[in-house]
Amino acid sequence: MSTVILLIHVMIAIALVGVILLQRSEGGALGIGGGGGGGGGFMTGRSAGDALTRTTTILAACFFLTSLTLSILASHNTASTPSIVPTSGGEGGLTPLTIPGQTEPTAPAAPAAPSGPQVPQSN
């Protein structure tokens, strides 16, 4: 179910980017839709702008709804832990070291400290 909604969400996002890029730019940015008057084309500048604005609004609302739906589905699919960091037992999420046959976890042995200065022997 969430895979289908995620796929719809991605398609809406791509369509939203495309519609935003088609809109007429007032500041000379990325608007490639032109929308200028002049030619007796299919849509006039004002009706094309209104249709693109309406389409952007609808796509933005659908994007918002699919985002909410995906977050609700993700929160229901997780266990009772609201954390994003998985915990597996010990402190800090680390599992203590256990040796087979022992009931309690053990700490790793510390390396032996050298006793005094090490002087190489000459032959």
Rank of each mutant, 00 (worst) to 15 (best):
G92E: 00
D50L: 13
S25H: 12
V85S: 03
I99A: 14
A51H: 11
S80P: 09
L21P: 00
L21G: 00
I14T: 00
L68P: 01
T98Q: 01
G39H: 03
L59A: 04
I84E: 09
G49D: 13
T57S: 14
G37N: 11
L59W: 02
G33S: 04
T81D: 10
R24Y: 02
L68C: 09
L97N: 07
A29Y: 11
I72E: 13
L30H: 08
T57H: 15
H76C: 14
L16E: 01
M11W: 07
A13F: 01
I99N: 10
E91C: 08
T66R: 02
P82I: 06
P86H: 07
L70F: 12
T57Y: 13
I12M: 02
F64R: 01
T95F: 03
V19F: 01
A74I: 02
I14C: 04
S88H: 04
G49T: 11
I12F: 04
T95Y: 06
A79E: 09
G93M: 00
V10D: 07
P86A: 10
G39A: 13
A48L: 15
H76T: 12
G38A: 08
V10P: 07
I20S: 00
A51N: 13
L59Q: 00
S71C: 15
L97G: 04
G27N: 10
V85I: 14
I32Y: 08
G41S: 11
L59S: 06
A61H: 03
E91V: 05
Q23I: 01
S88W: 00
G27W: 14
T87G: 07
E26W: 14
A60C: 14
G92I: 05
G93E: 02
A15S: 09
S88N: 08
C62D: 12
I20K: 01
